[in-house]
């Protein structure tokens, strides 16, 4: 419903623009043109920035990646900068494990909260919850890391064993951090499901829950998938909170109670003192992360174009 009004605004806007262009000729023409160019440059800056970021990360990281081979770099599990051995296999696995682990609990909880807010909660409660979730989204990652270090890590140490700095601590903290993304995006897509779908299902005698499970959620599917992928992107790129609670040993953990190091942690921990090949290897780590994130983004974009109801448009 909202998108049709937007469409209307857009077509009407274009008519106005044409009108404006016709009336814009005259003595003010030069000044107007200059302003338009300045505004164009502002917009073009976005493209320039993404271009520069790509160029610089690749220019710094690619040489080393080629020198030791992408396969060796990605899958070699030994990382000993002092001996010149650079393999991010354990970190790559670490990032994957911590991301999947956090999604394992944050996705179900996030989705059911989204359904709750969109379909079940009274309007007032839904609104308050929405505000609280925005606050959750606004808390900086370093505060989450701090809470993890002070509360979650000792808890794990006392009740589950190990020294607490672990994959599990990372999974708990990271899950909390991706909840707002998952909830907000999937709630929007659930709200965007046309009311007729719901009414039709209820009219046919389905209960409210049956309607939610068989009609509303399937109709909002592509938006929900977008929410999950966005949450995944957030999890894989998260740095500070993960550094603070996971112990950061560059080994593949044997259990959730063992420490782990992610690709992002690797960069922030060692960038301060790295030089030469070591520094280049950190940029190559960033490059792998960058490629990962851009692929996720493109996936979302393709889905948004393919799906009818993406929840974003």
């Amino acid at each position: 419903m909202q998108s049709t009004t937007r469409l209307q605004i857009n077509t009407r806007k274009n008519n106005t623009i044409r009108f404006a262009q016709n009336s814009g000729r005259g003595r003010r023409h030069k000044g107007e043109k200059l302003i338009e160019i300045v505004l164009l440059l502002c917009a073009a800056l976005f493209i320039l920035v993404i271009f520069l970021i790509t160029i610089f990360i690749f220019a710094k990281g690619l040489p080393l990646l080629i020198k030791i081979g992408p396969g060796n770099f990605l899958f070699e599990t030994e990382w000993s900068p002092t001996r010149g051995v650079f393999g991010i296999g354990s970190m790559f696995m670490g990032s994957i494990m911590i991301t999947l682990g956090s999604m394992l609990w944050a996705v179900p909880l996030g989705l059911s909260t989204a359904v709750f807010m969109a379909e079940i909660a009274p309007a007032r409660i839904g609104q308050v919850l929405g505000n609280l979730i925005n606050l959750l989204a606004g808390i900086p990652s370093v505060v989450y890391g701090f809470i993890g270090l002070i509360v979650v890590v000792p808890f794990i140490r006392d009740y589950f064993g190990g020294n607490g700095l672990s994959l599990l601590a990372g999974i708990i903290i990271l899950g909390i951090m991706i909840l707002p993304t998952i909830i907000n995006v999937s709630r929007d897509s659930i709200l965007a499901v046309p009311n007729e779908y719901k009414e039709g299902s209820l009219a046919m005698g389905a209960t409210h829950y049956q309607t939610i499970a068989r009609v509303i959620v399937p109709a909002a599917r592509s938006g929900i998938i977008t929410a999950i992928v966005l949450g995944m992107g957030r999890a894989i790129g998260e740095t500070m909170a993960v550094v603070m609670v996971t112990g950061n040993s560059a080994i593949i953990p044997g259990s959730v109670l063992e420490p782990v190091r992610t690709m992002t942690s690797n960069i922030v921990l060692e960038m301060g003192y790295a030089s030469g090949d070591h520094q280049t290897a950190l940029f190559a780590t960033g490059m792998v992360l960058f490629i990962f994130i851009v692929c996720l983004n493109l996936m979302i974009n393709l889905m948004a174009r393919g799906g009818i109801n993406s929840g974003r448009s």
Binding site: A43, A44, F46, I47, V49, I50, L52, I53, F56, I57, K60, L230, G233, I236, G237, E238, T239, T264, I267, V268, M271, L282, F283, G286, L289, F290, I293, V294, L296, N297, N301
Partner: peptide, 19 residues
């Protein structure tokens, strides 16, 4: 521009740091 703005919004801060 819209696509790059969206991509930019999704890039983790550590990548901006490296850049």
């Amino acid at each position: 521009v819209n696509l790059t703005a969206e991509t930019l919004a999704g890039i983790p801060s550590i990548i901006f740091g490296l850049f």
